[in-house]
């Protein structure tokens, strides 16, 4: 029996949903239970998710990022990947219980049929595009996971301040470790975003697009996200901003990305499939 890539992704979303249900169970039990089941659920979801992206990529013969569905699934995939790498540590794995609702919500959103619009055959292919997309997706994934860690920090910190006993009884990570995770993920996300923008600039200079992408809304949006990331990193590393404010900052950054990513893509001529003139006299670089 052969499944389509969307069916594979649907299986992944179902597993993300099961992970949400198990997370609710963990939450009801005060996060005292072992989190292995949740990690395995997210791992299984990630495998289906990867299969969906691989299948779509094979059918397109390129990195699958030609519409909002594909871009969204790529970002959630990056987030799940980063979680699975971090989550292998005991206690840190509880981040999965907080990440699964985010993965599930974005996954359900991505499954809306209107997002998977099939336009003309993509004009851009090759290594530059794959790198451009992968770097952006990984940076947004890192921001997403740092927001999850930020939420965990604020929740734990509030419980500690209020002397809620559940905070001591739970097996959630200590707040200082959550702080380290937050800072590292935001720094990683910012570094990847910087690299992604650099790659985009080099790539755009190698091809000539009409209209010019310099004032493309998506590019302006990406620069805005980069500036927000820069502000967060500088405030933390240079001005020693308080951890609580930093946690709110990480949440704010990801909420901004989540709420405006699709809108900025829709109004961007460069990122929307449609008639576009490309001067192909200069071949696009490939890896």
């Amino acid at each position: 029996m052969s499944f389509t890539d969307r069916q594979y992704f649907s299986f992944a979303v179902i597993l993300y949903g099961l992970s949400v249900l198990y997370s609710i169970f963990l939450w009801r039990r005060g996060f005292r239970e072992d989190n292995k089941v949740n990690y395995l659920l997210l791992l299984a979801a990630f495998l289906f998710h990867s299969a969906a992206m691989f299948k779509r990529g094979l059918s397109l013969q390129q990195c699958p990022v030609n519409n909002l569905y594909e871009a969204t699934t790529f970002i959630t995939w990056a987030m799940a990947l980063i979680y699975l790498l971090f989550g292998a540590w005991p206690r840190i794995s509880f981040i999965g219980a907080f990440a699964s609702p985010v993965l599930f919500s974005i996954g359900v959103f991505a499954l809306m049929p209107a997002l998977d619009h099939h336009g003309p055959k993509p004009e851009f292919t090759g290594g530059w595009l794959s790198l451009h997309v992968a770097l952006f997706a990984l940076s947004y994934g890192a921001f997403g996971l740092s927001a999850v860690a930020g939420f965990m920090y604020l929740s734990q910190e509030h419980d500690l301040k209020m002397h809620r006993i559940k905070v001591v009884l739970s097996r959630l990570p200590p707040i200082q470790r959550l702080e380290v995770i937050m800072v590292r993920l935001v720094t990683l996300g910012f570094a990847l975003l910087s690299l992604a923008l650099l790659v985009s600039v080099v790539w755009l200079h190698s091809i000539e697009l009409s209209p010019s992408p310099h004032f493309d809304p998506k590019l302006i949006w990406a620069v805005l996200v980069w500036l927000m990331g820069l502000a967060l990193v500088c405030l933390r590393w240079v001005a020693h901003q308080s951890v609580r404010k930093f946690a709110w900052g990480t949440i704010g950054l990801f909420v901004f990305v989540a709420l405006t990513f699709w809108g900025s893509s829709l109004i961007s001529p460069t990122h929307n499939s449609g008639p576009r003139q490309v001067n192909t006299s200069e071949p696009s670089p490939r890896f």
Binding site: R32, Q156, L160, V168, P174, I175, Q176, R177, V180
Partner: peptide, 23 residues
């Protein structure tokens, strides 16, 4: 089971609190 989990002396609770805060 959780029969041996947690601390029931003041000193041990203080340790658990410290472990909830510090890495």
């Amino acid at each position: 089971t959780n029969i041996q989990r947690g601390s029931i002396s003041v000193g041990s609770v203080a340790v658990e609190l410290a472990e909830t805060i510090f890495s």
